[in-house]
């Protein structure tokens, strides 16, 4: 039986506008197996980042349940949630969100503070793997956009997470850098990583095994790519 690493059950999210409830989406159901590459493609403002944040435990749903590696995250406290973020989740942002005061290697090993790991060799191996073995001690300001995003990918992977979430990972990159980052994602998938990626770019979404979109305020399979 294949391992389910992420499950969404009846997820909904709304915001209050005075007395009115504004639903972003509702009744979202999804199961992601280990080693799957799933993409959610939808135009800006459709709620895909909100959905990704809920999946990655960065936001709480208004209704429904999220299971990560079989754990119901609605039933755990902030401390356990931090543990899940540190151990089971990797997150790649559109804006990279590197710490400018830290070198590339220090940025990659930053999650060790939270996971308790000390595997510096693995961090260096990851840096070499993404082609930044020569720039370990460079600061983010000394790196190009593509290099920054590669550092961010290494940082997301350094604790060997169960799921790698990516929010528009090529959104801030030039075409060549975007290609390089996507190639890395594909390689990571081939190596057995589970990837969930949101994008507004259909060309990027096509690289995934399964593609979803948000239509009529719910998540549906996108099979017309």
């Amino acid at each position: 039986m294949e391992e389910i690493v992420l499950e969404l059950r009846g997820i909904g999210k709304y915001y209050l506008d005075g007395n009115n409830i504004l639903w972003v989406f509702r009744d979202v159901n999804l199961k992601v197996k280990a080693n799957e590459f799933v993409a959610i493609v939808a135009p800006s403002g459709s709620g895909k980042t909100t959905l990704l944040n809920i999946m990655a435990t960065l936001d709480r749903p208004s209704e429904g349940k999220v299971f990560i590696d079989g754990i119901d995250i609605s039933k755990i406290d902030d401390r356990e949630l931090s543990y899940i973020r540190a151990k089971k989740i990797g997150f790649v942002f559109q804006q990279f969100n590197l710490i400018p005061e830290l070198t590339a290697l220090e940025n990659v090993t930053l999650p060790f503070i939270f996971s308790g790991s000390r595997d510096i060799d693995y961090a260096i191996q990851l840096m070499k793997r993404i082609g930044l073995g020569e720039r370990l001690n460079f600061y983010p300001s000394q790196l190009s956009g593509g290099q920054k995003q590669r550092v961010a990918i290494a940082r997301a992977l350094v604790n060997r997470p169960k799921i790698l979430f990516a929010d528009e990972p090529t959104g801030n990159l030039d075409p060549d850098s975007a290609k390089e980052v996507l190639r890395i994602f594909e390689e990571l998938h081939k190596e057995g990583n589970t990837i969930i990626l949101v994008t507004h770019d259909y060309d990027i979404a096509r690289r995934a095994q399964r593609v979803y979109t948000i239509k009529n305020k719910t998540l549906v399979v996108k099979d017309d790519l």
Partner: peptide
Amino acid sequence: KQLATMKVLGGDSRF
């Protein structure tokens, strides 16, 4: 944003 990033990476209240 950096503090938020650290929370995403697993930074808890103790950190």
